[in-house]
Design a binder for these strands. Structure first.
Lengths: 193, 193
DNA sequence: ACGGTATGAATGAATG
DNA sequence: CATTCATTCATACCGT
């Protein structure tokens, strides 16, 4: 897995890194070698989560033996790894329960995939509050319109209201949910917000 | 990383993966049904761009009626959809009708709000040897569990003196631990078990 | 069979 | 530390 799964992500795009590092590494973005990842992972597994500046420097120095690397890469690596690890731990696998799933009332379209039942526990989704953006013009022009409330209420199937329910799973939902917008009962369909 | 890939179901023996369905659907990757895509697209169209965790879970639960799906799929779907839309939008916007006036938009939203980020400054480049000379008390920066001993002090490589000059790169935007009179307990040599 | 394209998944890099 | 953006990798799928 991880890098081990293949270990060929070495993309040598000779795009003038100018760096002058003889390794012909791509400059755009650090591409860790398998060895580097291995070591980093090992350190992480050992319990290191937020290395100090000194540690970061040392680590990157050592890792530079395997290829181009900068301290900030190490820094980011740990940040990301930690964050994603946690994120992963907080997934709620819901579709594992096969109640009456014979959902084949689909229309006769092209190809229909019957791939099911498999417990691929992986990361899940991040959480955040409603970020009904405030039209702050960033350097991007997306998020054109965030409807105040996406009221679609796409009632497509026998909705199962599971508002604040937490299955006996390991819902690690550390709810930072301060207060949802005082949603009274909230009909919980596909109408969010 | 551990969280890297998912447990691919390369061996669709009898577990999930459809168990020899005629379509030979591979389990490795979520393949949304047309209904799922339809709903997702509808939601997107209605303005939803970055669903919160709650929303993601609700959506995926609802969509599971149509077939196997997990929260992460929904998460990724929105991420990708948003990103690609932006990317496409960008391609079209590039040089498209720049009001031939060359607006001198001198000011950009360049955040020069960096102030106390100097710590990462030096981090940008690997230093010489590891100068493990600092003594200090213990102040673990490790999150929770800190293996009493994480070090094996396994010298992997010849501690070369690699001096990578740091280019005028941005400095890390982040204040590392303010005072570090004390250095981490680790004696920082790369080590792994 | 390929080759291109659409898109799911992963992750480096930021920013607040 | 949480969340988001961008880029890339890996596949599924479709056309020729």
């Amino acid at each position: 897995m991880d890098e081990g799964m293949s270990g060929f992500c070495i993309k040598a795009s000779a795009a003038g890194c100018g760096g002058g590092n003889g390794t012909g590494t791509k400059c755009g973005r650090w591409n860790p070698t398998t060895e580097q990842v291995k070591v980093l992972t090992e350190l992480f597994r050992s319990g290191l989560r937020t290395p100090s500046t000194d540690q970061i420097q040392k680590i990157s120095t050592q890792l530079s033996f395997y290829g181009k690397i900068e301290s900030k890469n190490v820094f980011y690596w740990f940040q990301n790894h930690k964050a994603r690890e946690r994120q992963k731990r907080r997934k709620v696998s819901i579709s594992v329960h096969d109640d009456h799933h014979n959902h084949n009332h689909d229309l006769h379209h092209h190809h229909q995939h019957k791939d099911f039942i498999r417990r691929m526990d992986k990361i899940s989704s991040p959480k955040h509050f409603l970020e009904v953006n405030h039209h702050h013009h960033h350097h991007q022009v997306y998020d054109h319109h965030q409807p105040e409330k996406v009221m679609e209420t796409l009632q497509l199937f026998p909705l199962n209201s599971f508002e604040e329910y937490s299955e006996p799973e390991k819902l690690m939902i550390r709810s930072m949910h301060a207060n949802h917008d005082h949603h009274p009962p909230l009909d919980l369909r596909l109408s969010f917000l």
